[in-house]
Design a protein around this nucleic acid. Sequence first.
DNA 1: TGTGTTGTTACAAACGTTTGCAAAAACCTG
DNA 2: CAGGTTTTTGCAAACGTTTGTAACAACACA
Lengths: 350, 350
Amino acid sequence: MKNRSRKFSNVTIKDIAREAGVSYSTVSRVINNFEYIKPETRERVTDAMTELGYVANQHARRLVGGRSQVIGLLIHAFDSPYIGQIVQGIDEAVAEAEYDLMLYTTHRRKTRESTFVVSIARGLADGLLMVLPRDVDTYLDTLNQQGFPFVLIDYVATSNDVPAVSATNRQGAYDAAAHLIELGHRHIGFIAGDMVADSARERLQGYKDALVDNGISFESALVYEGDFFQSSGFAGADALLSLDAPPTAICASNDVMAFGAYEAVRSRGLRTPQDISIVGFDDIPQAAQVHPPLTTIRQPLQEMGRLATQMLLSWIEETVEEQLGYVQLPTELVARDSACSPTESVFYRS
Amino acid sequence: MKNRSRKFSNVTIKDIAREAGVSYSTVSRVINNFEYIKPETRERVTDAMTELGYVANQHARRLVGGRSQVIGLLIHAFDSPYIGQIVQGIDEAVAEAEYDLMLYTTHRRKTRESTFVVSIARGLADGLLMVLPRDVDTYLDTLNQQGFPFVLIDYVATSNDVPAVSATNRQGAYDAAAHLIELGHRHIGFIAGDMVADSARERLQGYKDALVDNGISFESALVYEGDFFQSSGFAGADALLSLDAPPTAICASNDVMAFGAYEAVRSRGLRTPQDISIVGFDDIPQAAQVHPPLTTIRQPLQEMGRLATQMLLSWIEETVEEQLGYVQLPTELVARDSACSPTESVFYRS
DNA sequence: TGTGTTGTTACAAACGTTTGCAAAAACCTG
DNA sequence: CAGGTTTTTGCAAACGTTTGTAACAACACA
């Protein structure tokens, strides 16, 4: 009970001070690379450090007011490759800057999100990254008021002064639909994502805009509201193909739902793209690897994570003066094999 | 410069002591649920806490010797769904226990692994989880000697007293090969994983054992050494199919390489499973979603993460007396559509 | 030799908690 | 109401750092 958490050796600054025959403040200054240290002293200290295997206690450091070199990352869950890609970008940037990453998952429970935000802001982290945040309004003020550094990822900001990174969702969906229209499709279905997400709404809007711009009237019957998961892609495509006048092409709001649509098409004995063209969104790694390779809108996911991290770090380290703002990274159409001209189709409803 | 990191309000235990008209130690006791607190006092304190929005400073807590409620997780990278699944299991168990998760990625650089291990052990975390660790011998002693809690995941222990969780890799591969043999295959290729990984070696062994047990002689020409990535699955299958006597079936050491093999088969104008049967390993979510759905060996990845976390927590919290050991979770054959009897094949080499 | 620099080091306070010890308050019991 | 418990509270020390202040050492200059 006495030495409960002191089971393992605990070399402190004082131990190495004793070993090197100097005061502990000198040791601290050696560690922090102060000028005005006699080279000989410095060497004695570093020698003692390696000898005793000294590792700084981060908690003590942070307590006196220093940085913890930790950044908090708040995500819903690990269930999608989409998140994985973003996290990979974040992780790289974080590692480069020699920070550590603290992971918080809400498991999609709303309450946890705001709870986390306050405790992170007061707790271990120097800054906070949030992917696809939900109740932003709940804590945005708190955060701003406390001056706590944060950057939102894939949050569609309404004003320009909230630090956030996202992709050109509207434009991306516009391009997807326009691509199909260009191929000759006039009757295009749309499988939306979870509409509480800003990006889902933006993508739907892009689809609508493309239709209108090309003189095609929007039909709400051709829109199925999914939730970004594969099963809803299946359900959506299935519903769309059951219509009296089914579409000849389908835009899915993300790749995973596009894969679900693949299944639905296959389950009806139809083929992609000959019978139904399908376009996804995201360009997750699997998009290139499924059969047929998926035509999709590439979102620079890793890049988004990376940029957000860099923005956050510049805020934390105050390396930059101007206020951080809202950045949109460009999407890009990646034409693979899942969409073709409807004229090529062996039209199954004669 | 003065209040550099004190930009945001910082309510301490003393502030709420003043507010509630008690001493700060009383506040601390309220926070830590001590008995012997007058209910009325307790209430005054909790009221003050909510009023002032108190959040405990974890660093100070940890400094006096308490737990940080943080567990460290060391992985290579985020690049595979395999890792994602394990992390999901870990994350769930960690969240349940109300711990936080600190993430360290080595990006496959060996040096970083041991560096991390020492700094984590001395730093923020109460315990350490490592997925697919490499140079375990380098730091196993240090860890043990310091009595620092840790559990390895997907590390094949040679002795039983190292706390580790893995799956029955040998048996799994054995089952995969046996399944193909049972279907009638006699000429079976094997795409191995990165042989520095214990699991890769175990799987190869299982394949060999199944062959021998069924009176089939092992041919090293039928083994291709891959690296667990998709491209090596492609290369492996391609090499195998280029042999003078190509196999009628291929066992891949993980699902991702099996997908690569799919591509190789397809690129030669052949079909899975009619021309070539393919079996994977892991049963990552995509395995059920590719076409054809992949016959594979299910590893309980989430379960492994979960169990390892629970073991670690029981060590940290000393809720269990006996020494933690090596646990192997059972694998299971999941027969889908990518393997069939070779007699059904339209045999392409007449 | 005294004085002024400049480089180098030590001491002490502070960060926000937890916790051992002791004192105070409240409650019994006779 | 004195004496003894038991409950409740406060004080002070400690955890391992960083950093302001001050002192000391070395050196140059006059």
